[in-house]
């Protein structure tokens, strides 16, 4: 009796596996680094005066699936389009790299609280949140600055969304530098 049951289960599993259809391929995207070309061939010491110490994101962004939003406020985490790494790590590295290439006279730490890093469901990308600056002389008194960037997509698809978000990141980098001048 037991042998009959075990055989039946095994047959069912094998049948399940056999009936599985072919899955779509998963695409991975890396946040483009616009400062890459500026650093090519450079041998100077990067500026260490201003850096991004921490980037935190909302829970929905704390995963590799690219988030898209619809007009009715629904958000969808993509199953087949992923960031190559968690967005907050990519943002921290990208912004640090950007700030080091700029000759900022400020010395201190920047922290980022990202509320949106996604498509807005209306033909654009949305990068929004709050960044805080704590001067090195007064590390315990941080001053908050709100940011909100919308970038229209050049084309349909996730690649265009990633490019638009990358432009917003560069814009944030520029604005931080200008704000702290």
């Amino acid at each position: 009796m037991m042998r009959a049951i075990a055989f039946l289960v095994l047959a069912t599993v094998l049948l399940g596996c056999a009936s599985n259809k072919a899955q779509p391929r998963i695409s991975y995207y890396q946040l483009p680094d616009s400062t890459q070309q500026a650093e090519e061939g450079s041998v100077g010491m990067p500026s260490q005066r201003l850096s991004v110490a921490r980037v935190s994101t909302s829970d929905i962004l704390a995963q590799t699936g690219i988030v898209t939003a619809s007009a009715d406020a629904r958000v969808v985490v993509a199953n087949y389009h992923h960031w190559s790494e968690l967005p907050e790590l990519a943002l921290q590295r990208n912004l640090n790299k950007c700030l080091r290439t700029r000759e900022s006279r400020s010395t201190g730490k920047v922290s980022l609280e990202v509320e949106a890093f996604q498509s807005d469901g209306a033909g654009g990308s949305l990068f929004a949140g709050v960044w805080n600056y704590a001067a090195a002389a007064q590390p315990r008194s941080a001053k908050p600055y709100r940011f909100h960037y919308r970038q229209a997509l050049d084309d349909d698809g996730y690649a265009a969304l990633v490019s638009a978000l990358a432009l917003s990141v560069q814009q944030l980098c520029s604005d931080i530098e200008k704000q702290l001048q």
Partner: peptide, 13 residues
């Protein structure tokens, strides 16, 4: 397991 739903494609304006 059923295959995940297809992702919505971001469209340009």
């Amino acid at each position: 397991s059923s295959p995940p739903a297809a992702d919505p494609i971001p469209r340009k304006d």
